[in-house]
Nucleic acid binder design. Structure first.
Lengths: 254, 254
DNA sequence: CCGGATCCGAATCGATACTG
DNA sequence: CAGTATCGATTCGGATCCGG
C-alpha cells in the first residue's frame, strides 16, 4: 500500500492513481497531439523540472499508458492504445477549464500543443457537419496553427511560426480519412486557407470560443486581426469551436 | 505565480490547477452523488487526512466549484452549477479507470458513492433505451445499491445495508423525470426490484462490466450470487452497464 | 547537444492530537 | 460534528552534473 494509493476499489480512484499526479495528464495531453521527444515535452511544459518529467515518463510507461516508439532513430514517446483512451478525459477537462481561464498573466505561455488540444476540446463535430469544409490559419499568441475542418472531422497541425507569408484561397484537401497528423508545413508554399487571423494575447481566442465576444466585435475592437480571407468566416469559426461561457466567472485565482 | 501553477494559458492546464490536486476530484465525485456533510465525506474517503479535506473544501469553494448548502440546518457541501459541469470529466475518468482496476486488495474498501459513480460511468443510455424499465438491487462488497433504469435515464440510490430483506417484483416507478436522488430506503417496505444480486469482493462487478466474465459463468462460478428474481436479467444488467475491457491489462501496480 | 540522473531547500501531504 | 494544530515523511522545484 503505497502512500499515494487512495485505498478505494473504484474506477475513478484507480484513474487518479495512474494519471492523477502533477504534470501527468499534461504529458498525456501533449502526446495526444503526436509522438514527442523528451526535449520537446520539456519545452512544451516549460516549467516542469527535468527530474519530474523523467519520473512521470517512467511511471506512465510502467502503467502501460505510454511507450518509447519502436524502430525510431531518436527516442520518441507515444501513447499506447490504452493511453489514447484518455482522450475523452483530456477533452472533457479542456472544455471545462476553458471557461475558467480568465485573462492570461504575464508569466503564462501558449504552446502549439496545448492550443491544439484546447481547440479539439471546443470542437463541435455535429455543428461542423452542417458547414462547408474550411481551412483556417491562426496565429494565437505566437503559436501558429493550421486548422482544417471537413465534415465532422478536425485536423490541427502546427505551423511552427511560418504562418507569416500566406497565399490565397485554394482549398484542396488531401484524400479523405487520412489527415496526416503533425505534418511539416511546406515552408515556401502558399497555404490553401480560407481565413487567416491572429490574436495578440490568447485571451482573444478564449473570448471567441466562449462567446464572451462576438466575432464582429472582436474584429472591430482589435482583439482579433484578420490577415487574409473574408472576415465573415470568423463567425463560422466561432460556431465550430464553442463552449458555453462560465455562468459566473470563477472567483479563485491569485 | 504560485508554485502550483503550470505557467501555461490553456484550458486543460487551468482545469488541473483547479481540481488537479490530490483528493480534489474524489471529493467532487462523491458530491456528484448528492450533498454531503464533512463527516460523510471523511467517511467515504476514509484515508483522507482531516486537514487535507478541510483545505480542499476551502479551495474548491474559493474556485466556485462547491459551496455550503444554504438554509440547511446542518452544514452540507454541494456542487455549484459550474462544479456539476465536472460530471463528464469524472465519468470519463471512471470509464477509463474501471479497465485498470485489477482485483481488489485487502486494504481497499468499496463505498456506496464510489460505486454509484462507477455505475454511472459504465451506463450506456442508448442501450438502455431499447430495454424495458428494470430495477436492480445490488450488494457489492458490502455497499447496497438500488439501481433503476428506465429509458435512457439511470437512478442509483444507496441502500445503506438494508438490502437483506427484499420483496417481490412489482416494478412501480415514481413519476417520470423526478427521480429523487438519495432518497432513504423505506426500512420495512418490500422493494420493487426485478433482480437482486450480490458480489462478495467487488471484483465480480468489475468483471461483469468489462465483459471479462459472462453473466452465466459469473453465476455458475459463484462470483455473483442471485438473491432474487430471474437470473437471466443479469445479462440485461451487463448489457446496460459496460465498458470495453482493457486490451492488455495494465502492468503497473505494486 | 540530447536524454536524463543527482542533490538539496521548499512546499505539500499524512497521521494524529486537540478544540469550540 | 466540523474543523485546527502540529510535526515527521514525501514530493516537488530549481539547479547542476554526466555519459553518449
Amino acid at each position: 500500500m503505497a502512500a499515494r494509493d487512495y485505498g478505494q476499489y473504484s474506477g475513478i480512484t484507480r484513474a487518479m492513481e495512474l494519471v492523477g499526479e502533477r504534470w501527468a495528464l499534461l504529458i498525456v495531453r501533449d502526446l495526444l497531439v503526436g509522438p514527442r521527444r523528451y526535449g520537446e515535452l520539456a519545452a512544451g511544459l516549460h516549467r516542469i523540472p527535468s527530474n519530474i518529467l523523467a519520473a512521470r515518463l517512467k511511471e506512465l510507461q510502467a502503467a502501460g499508458i505510454i511507450r518509447r516508439a519502436p524502430r525510431s532513430r531518436v527516442i520518441l514517446y507515444e501513447l499506447t492504445p490504452y493511453g489514447r483512451e484518455l482522450e475523452p478525459v483530456v477533452l472533457a477537462l479542456g472544455a471545462w477549464g476553458i471557461k475558467a481561464m480568465g485573462d492570461p498573466r504575464d508569466e503564462q505561455v501558449v504552446t502549439a500543443d496545448s492550443m491544439t488540444m484546447d481547440l479539439r476540446s471546443a470542437f463541435r463535430p455535429q455543428v461542423a457537419l452542417e458547414l462547408p469544409p474550411t481551412a483556417y490559419g491562426a496565429r494565437l499568441a505566437g503559436a501558429d496553427l493550421l486548422i482544417r475542418v471537413r465534415g465532422s472531422t478536425l485536423d490541427v497541425t502546427s505551423g511552427a511560426g511560418r504562418l507569416g507569408r500566406l497565399g490565397p484561397v485554394d482549398l484542396s484537401f488531401p484524400p479523405d480519412p487520412a489527415f496526416p497528423t503533425d505534418l511539416a508545413f511546406p515552408t515556401d508554399l502558399a497555404f490553401p486557407t480560407d481565413l487567416v487571423f491572429s490574436t495578440e494575447t490568447g485571451a482573444g481566442i478564449r473570448q471567441l470560443i466562449t462567446g464572451e465576444l462576438a466575432p464582429d466585435r472582436a474584429i472591430s475592437a482589435g482583439v482579433v486581426e484578420v490577415l487574409h480571407g473574408r472576415s465573415e468566416l470568423l463567425d463560422r469559426f466561432a460556431t465550430t469551436f464553442h463552449v458555453a461561457a462560465c455562468p459566473r466567472p470563477v472567483s479563485c485565482c491569485r
